[in-house]
Structures are given as structure tokens and as C-alpha cells.
Design a protein around this nucleic acid. Structure first.
Lengths: 186, 186
DNA sequence: ACCTGAACACCGTTCAAGT
DNA sequence: ACCTGAACACCGTTCAAGT
């Protein structure tokens, strides 16, 4: 089946980067997992940076589609934000993994420029979606909620990161609950 | 002067890890910076993990002392938290670096257990300090403010991480301002 | 179109050998 | 006490060679 090898390279690489980081991704281990030689990976992705850009680009597109679907299915801010925080929670449950973009954010100073550009796009996408949700409960344009949306995005990302660092999903739950109690998250 | 080489190894290593991550720290580059051969580093730190544990341990001790000093010098929660958020801001200003513990939190799934234990200590230290500050403006024991303190710690850590990922200090400022506006941070 | 072995300059680590 | 060169198994990348 066409494109199957490329597909399996991307899937295995994504899972590894979310687990061990970009620096922890080895072409030789990756090739072993897919069942080819490490030199063959370069046929699909000339450099490690190309592979990183490809998996992050698709990661963003898929979550953008998922979030778009949530907005089409419901308009209650509390329920929408619950789905949003559950999304980050599920990543922790899957082998204490970190959001792909969050992991790459930490490593950004040693990443090629194309990946850094995708990290920006991840933030823009998340913040614009949250701003639309916040606009549902108040009056005004989603653009007016952009600063607070950035705060919600940063707060949820941070909760995931420290819970990942301490390998403690309950900590994520407690922190997110405190965000809600403080009124930061609807 | 005794211990000078060891000192310079630790300082150079810390700056590199906060910049490029634990995986981005190379013994050969580090040795070049200090002016010795890479094999000599193992005389001071048998393994890379030992070096990581040493620099994180000292990092935590120093910030603990700094924060303790703040609490001895003032009791106004707003001013204390301003110093706290400025501390994370200064790290971004220093070459877009990340908090050492935050960087290692992201990479934790490929770190030795001793470093993971220090990551826990970093969180405990920050949360207990924030809880003491929060207790200054309300009634009750610092322990009562522990959940909210964890939320403040996660939120500030997250703001630093996404600002680091986008190489944008203004984003950090905006997010922290939104935290204050929402009432999460005094 | 897709894959490979071999080579290259890197990496942390070990160790016998130096002073 | 402190440092080193050489070796080891790793790393991403390149390239000529295969089918």
C-alpha cells in the first residue's frame, strides 16, 4: 500500500518525540521500529528537521480539525473547555507524554526555523479557538478575548508540563480545577 | 584555586541546559569551553546524570535562598509575586533561556531517577513559598493555599515555556498580566 | 521508486597511562 | 589529585550502488 512506510515513520516518530523529545528521537531506533534501515528514512525525510516539521504540521492540523468539530457540536463554554482540558489530560495518560508542540517549545533553541514557525502556528490556533469559546459567554468579538485566551492556553500547557515532569496526572487535575475555581477557565 | 574547574564546568553546563536542553549538552563542547578534555569531566562528574543532578540541586538551593530573602524583606503579596514573576522573566531575557527545572521537566522521560527527584523538589519549594505568600493576604494556614499555589506555579511556568517556544518576552508579560487581571495571581 | 552498506564527524563512557 | 589519548557503541548525514 502506497505511503504506508512514510505513515509508519511519522507515527512512530511522533510518539517518541512526545515521550523523549526531539533530541531523544534516533533514526536508528526509528528505523528498527518501522523495519527498514536508518539510511532509508532520509528517502522520505531528507533531514531530521524535515521529519519534525512534517509531524508537527500534521499534529496541528488534526487538533485544529478536532477543535473545530467541538465548536460545531456545542456552544456551552464550560463543556467546550472541559473537552479542551481533557485533550491535554489524555496525552499525559498515554505514557506520560507531553503535547508535541509543548515538547518542541522547550527544545526550540536547537530546532530548525521551520519547526519554530510551526510552534507559532500551534499557539495561534489554540488561542484563536479559546477566544471564540470565551466570546460565546460574553458580548464582543473573539478578538477582544485574545489576551485572556493566551493566558488560558499558557496555563493549561503549564499544568501539563509540570504534571509531566512529576509524572503525576492528579496534579494536572488539581491545577486545572484551581484554574476553574479562580475563574480563569469557564 | 581549589574547585575552580568544577565550578566552571557546572556554570557552563547550567547555561547550556537552560538553552539547548539536557540532550543538547555535549561533554566535548563543555570541555572546550572550560579548557580541558572531555574525559576529564568524568573525574568531577562520573556520568552526565551526576552533572545534571548537581547543577539542578544547586539551582534549587539558590532560588530557595533568594525567595526566602524576599519573604524576610517584605510582606506585601502583590510586591512579592511581582518579584516572583520577574524572576522567570529575567531567565527569558538571558538568551531566551528556560528555567532549568522546567527544561528538565519536559525531558524527564529520558532522565535518570536522581534528576527526577530534584524536579519534584523544585515544585515543592516553589509551591510552599507561593502558599506562604498567599496566606499573607488571607486568613488561614499556608497549607490551605497549597492547591492555589500549585496553580500559580504551573501558570507562571507555562507562561515562560510558551514565551520561550515563540521567542517572545512580550507574550510572557501579556499572559502574566492576564493572570493578575483574572485574580489568579495577587 | 525504494532501499542499502559504508563512510564521515559527532556523542557519553571507560580505562590504562601519564604527571 | 588531576588530566589525557584511544577505544567503544552510539548519533545524523551523505553517497555510490543496488533492485
Amino acid at each position: 500500500m502506497a505511503g504506508d512506510t512514510r505513515e509508519r515513520i511519522m507515527e512512530s516518530a511522533r510518539l517518541t518525540v512526545q515521550d523523549l523529545g526531539y533530541g531523544g528521537l534516533s533514526f536508528r531506533e526509528l528505523a528498527k521500529d518501522v523495519g527498514i534501515k536508518s539510511a532509508s528514512i532520509h528517502y522520505y525525510f531528507p533531514t531530521k528537521g524535515d521529519l519534525g516539521e512534517a509531524i508537527l504540521g500534521r499534529y496541528i492540523d488534526r487538533y485544529a480539525a478536532f477543535l473545530e468539530g467541538l465548536l460545531e457540536a456545542g456552544t456551552e463554554p464550560g463543556a467546550l473547555m472541559r473537552h479542551y482540558t481533557d485533550m491535554f489530560r489524555a496525552t499525559l495518560l498515554n505514557g506520560n507524554r507531553l503535547c508535541l508542540a509543548g515538547m518542541l517549545s522547550a527544545e526550540r533553541n536547537e530546532l530548525p526555523a521551520e519547526i519554530c514557525a510551526e510552534i507559532l502556528r500551534w499557539g495561534e490556533m489554540n488561542e484563536s479557538w479559546i477566544a471564540r469559546v470565551l466570546a460565546l459567554q460574553g458580548t464582543g468579538d473573539p478578538a477582544d478575548f485574545r489576551p485572556r485566551a493566551a493566558a488560558v492556553f499558557a496555563a493549561v500547557s503549564g499544568a501539563q508540563m509540570i504534571a509531566h515532569g512529576r509524572h503525576d496526572v492528579a496534579l494536572y487535575d488539581d491545577v486545572v480545577a484551581a484554574y476553574r475555581a479562580s475563574g480563569l477557565i469557564p
